[in-house]
């Protein structure tokens, strides 16, 4: 029992635990839509485009959270606008936008020669989050959950049948924009836990794992949250006892859980229901 409880006698571990729980819940629920709507690339892009915002905020001593948020909201709205035009394909536009922004962030940062802080931005600082960070994370998580609950039936419908949604007067583009804004907020939250580079791991892998097991949207969200929380808490232990990088450990655990479930499902499909072929 001591092995499990000891780490959390430290306040930085307590804050880390709270951060992991808050971010895990937001990432996993929203990540379910990201997976189902095939927005994984956008998720990764939004994480990377936060970089110049983070760097500029860092250099001027502003809040990293709001720096990243401004950069991401601009990108989310930009993607929303670009995807309505047809002269550049959406994935191409996203690719151009996110590598450019990410590189810009690195260039500005490299001029200051502060690579330790760059490390935190890239790979997260879950064990250094402040109480202010936690309040913002809590606000983001509550906002994500409340919005998804209120817009559940419309979000679901536009995800699997945008044509019908349009016939009854629902503007799919507006719901997509809402989703992009929530995604931007969640990603900014998540960057603090696992960093810019690994954010899409926490966003996508838990939801993808859940999608292997269940055929219900709500069940998928619940299961994705469980996976994210298990990986999050496990990552903190790994960091405490083995001195691994916490953010990376969380993402590695997510990937391991996905792999295990994938293998289990492949075997179950082959041996339990061989008659279906």
């Amino acid at each position: 029992m001591h092995i499990l409880l000891d780490p959390f006698t430290f306040s930085f571990m307590q804050r880390g635990l709270l951060a992991v729980i808050l971010v895990g819940i937001a990432c996993a629920t929203l990540g379910t839509y990201v997976v189902l709507r095939q927005m994984a690339f956008i998720g990764d892009a939004l994480a990377h485009t936060a970089m110049p915002g983070l760097v500029v905020a860092y250099l001027y001593g502003w809040s990293l959270f709001f720096g990243a948020l401004v950069a991401d909201l601009v990108t989310a709205l930009g993607i929303g606008a670009l995807s309505r035009r047809r002269d550049v394909r959406e994935d191409t536009a996203i690719g151009i936008l996110f590598t450019g922004m990410f590189a810009l962030g690195i260039v500005i940062m490299s001029s200051t020669r502060s690579f330790r802080d760059l490390d935190e931005m890239l790979f997260g600082y879950v064990l250094a989050v402040t109480t202010t960070d936690l309040r913002l994370m809590a606000a983001v998580t509550v906002l994500v959950l409340v919005t998804l609950m209120l817009l559940h039936k419309e979000m679901e419908l536009t995800s699997f049948d945008p044509g019908y949604a349009q016939v009854i007067g629902i503007k799919a583009a507006i719901l997509r924009l809402v989703l992009l804004v929530l995604l931007a907020l969640t990603i900014v939250s998540c960057i603090q836990v696992v960093g810019v580079v690994l954010t899409s791991g926490l966003l996508i892998t838990p939801a993808a794992t859940a999608s292997l097991v269940t055929r219900r949207l709500r069940g998928m969200m619940a299961l994705a949250v469980l996976v994210a929380l298990a990986a999050g808490v496990g990552g903190l232990y790994a960091s405490y006892y083995f001195n691994f990088a916490a953010g990376a450990s969380i993402v590695v655990l997510c990937s391991i859980l996905f792999t295990l479930v994938y293998i289990w499902k492949t075997l179950a499909d082959r041996w339990v229901r061989p008659s279906r072929t």
Binding site: L36, K153, D161, I168, G169
Partner: peptide, 24 residues
Amino acid sequence: AQKGEVDWRFPISVRRLVLTGRYV
């Protein structure tokens, strides 16, 4: 629609899809 744009892999039951007809 003749060939709906429905994503048939989406995790939703027949019952719930039929229910979306009530949303309007």
